[in-house]
Write a protein that binds this DNA or RNA. Structure first.
Lengths: 334, 334
DNA sequence: TTGAAAGCGCTACCAG
DNA sequence: CTGGTAGCGCTTTCAA
């Protein structure tokens, strides 16, 4: 690899000048610029980002920590952030936290040690306090899908409670009153808030809480399958099922078909997230739209504004869910 | 951030010694090690990976370039590679190539400029020659899902042609003879090979080629929907549909239901890839298994072996697809 | 077993 | 407009 030194020798100028033309900073004469550019081309020179970063304390890269690298939800999150950053000539460095405190911490350390200019974090396991302390260290962080009061201007979050409320409300409006619920893991904030919204909707409708109608999953498909199985085994005669995310809903749907339960005639189902393939399920899955890609772009925009002083960016911290009606949710036959 | 210098001062030793205990290299007395370790803890010291990398020309990070960050196929690819690397204490740096020569090249340059020790590349647009030249520059590269003759020991690939063959053969074996095909983009190697396998199967069965039964998609769901629509508009009376991937198959299934075509009674469908949710579709989608996660792990293993001299690793370059029978493929009613 | 010192490739400040 | 030069934080000889 050619270095800046090789270029300076070939162009017959100093290191400083080469650096100037690389970074388009300072004034360099037209003629000199040309000489340098030519030398760079001839040598196939490419700046060493590592060295640049060490010298300038800037890396033009943003660390992104998400629980998992696969799955439609986080896929869209990554893609949204990466797109926005790429447009601004910044790079994303992505790593997985696997929803465990230890690995989340290790992931953050990794990103920090790579000198990221800022971090976008989807944290499941670490505490609010940890995030507050982290932010206090001076590195710009943006927390996505979580509301941390002291960091609220740095959080991009969804009103999950309203989302849960809307889902159940849609079932109520369709005439259902026996509504089962498959929750996400109780140690996840978003799962709890969705459940809280569900409770609120039931309460408003004057429907008493029935623990037989709840089961906890882990946001994966299999747990939707297992969840519905458990619920049915309890022998409660519910006509509607609210799932805390689409993946569990699709698992539940698969189970329903296995046991010849007619969908949506015998059971209405609604999910949450509006992941890409929910409209391709059969019946197409009603859900609550989670504008995750937009939110990820907003997180990126926040960083572009705060860290790179990009102008004219409108920041919006709170996002709202909306109902997406599809065939899996049907009026309760009276 | 505390630096190695701060640690050396606090511990009362030299920089070199601190470096030795960080890297567990060279002999350092028990006592000294303790002093240093304590100082590091007290200062909350974390090595600056950038500086380490610049000084040692090693980064312990592996660059991964894939076309897209979202989607089940690439999600599994990332996850598999990351998992294997993490176990070995290496880190993945992931970037998207978006299937365009320019961005793919930029992605590679980015990874190279970040001093990655090796690259795992899923390349769509760049030429074989480009890859050969790249490899010649000395950086270890592993090419995934593509066979490049001069680099064959560095390629981890699937026998896509056999996969295409198996899919169509399964339809033939089920009694179908009018078989439509929705292909991937013709400029993608894997798409062409799958199609070649399809042709081979037809030929062996003595079935003449019928251009009316072909349509080209882009591996996305929508193109499956559009593809089936186009095929049906041509008014050919096919009873089976082979899709070059599961996403297009799910799009086609959605369209079939829209127009009240009974699945699988009136149309048998098979996909390719065996992405996670294909078994949750209705009817569950028959497909060709693509062991992408295993392959990604193998790519990582190859790097661990070649670059980091990890021992005892068995490398296997070629992987084979296998048929996954599910409800969407049914015997042709005679 | 330890320390001194020369870089790694680049930026940024200070002179001129 | 250009050059000289002191680092950025760390690794890695070479000596002691």
């Amino acid at each position: 690899m050619a270095t800046i030194y090789d270029v300076s020798v070939m162009a017959g100028v100093s290191l400083a000048t080469v650096s100037r033309v690389i970074n388009k900073t300072g004034n360099v004469s037209e003629k000199t610029t040309q000489k340098v550019t030519q030398a760079m081309e001839r040598l196939g020179y490419r700046p060493n980002a590592i060295a640049q970063s060490l010298a300038s304390n800037r890396s033009n890269s943003i660390g992104i920590l998400i629980p998992e690298l696969c799955g439609p939800f986080f896929g869209n999150l990554m893609a949204g952030a990466e797109k926005r950053l790429r447009e601004a000539n910044k790079h994303a460095i992505i790593t997985a936290g696997h929803s465990k405190a230890e690995t989340e911490k290790a992931g953050i350390e990794f990103l920090l040690s790579r000198n990221c200019d800022a971090l976008i974090l989807h944290i499941d396991a670490l505490s609010d306090q940890y995030l507050v302390d982290l932010a206090a260290q001076g590195k710009e962080i943006v927390v996505i899908n979580r509301y941390v009061e002291p960091l609220k201007s740095r959080c991009i979050y969804l009103d999950n409670k309203t989302g849960g409320y809307l889902a159940t409300k849609a079932m109520l409006d369709a005439g259902h009153s026996k509504i089962a619920y498959i929750s996400g893991p109780t140690w996840k904030e978003d799962a709890n808030q969705r459940l809280a919204g569900h409770h609120q909707a039931l309460q408003e409708a004057g429907i008493a809480d029935n623990p037989h109608l709840y089961v906890t999953g882990d946001f994966k498909q299999e747990s939707g399958t297992a969840g519905l199985q458990t619920l049915l085994a309890r022998d409660s005669d519910f006509t509607a099922l609210v799932c805390a995310n689409d993946e569990m809903a699709s698992g539940a749907m698969a189970y329903a078909r296995d046991i010849k339960l007619a969908l949506p005639e015998q059971l209405s189902i609604i999910g949450f997230d509006n992941i890409v393939y929910s409209s391709y399920l059969y019946p197409s899955l009603a859900t609550v739209d989670y504008p995750v890609e937009e939110m990820a772009k907003m997180a990126a925009a926040l960083i572009l504004k705060e860290v790179y002083q990009q102008k004219g960016l409108q920041i919006n911290n709170e996002f709202y869910p909306s109902i997406v009606m599809r065939d899996s949710l049907q009026k309760r036959p009276s």
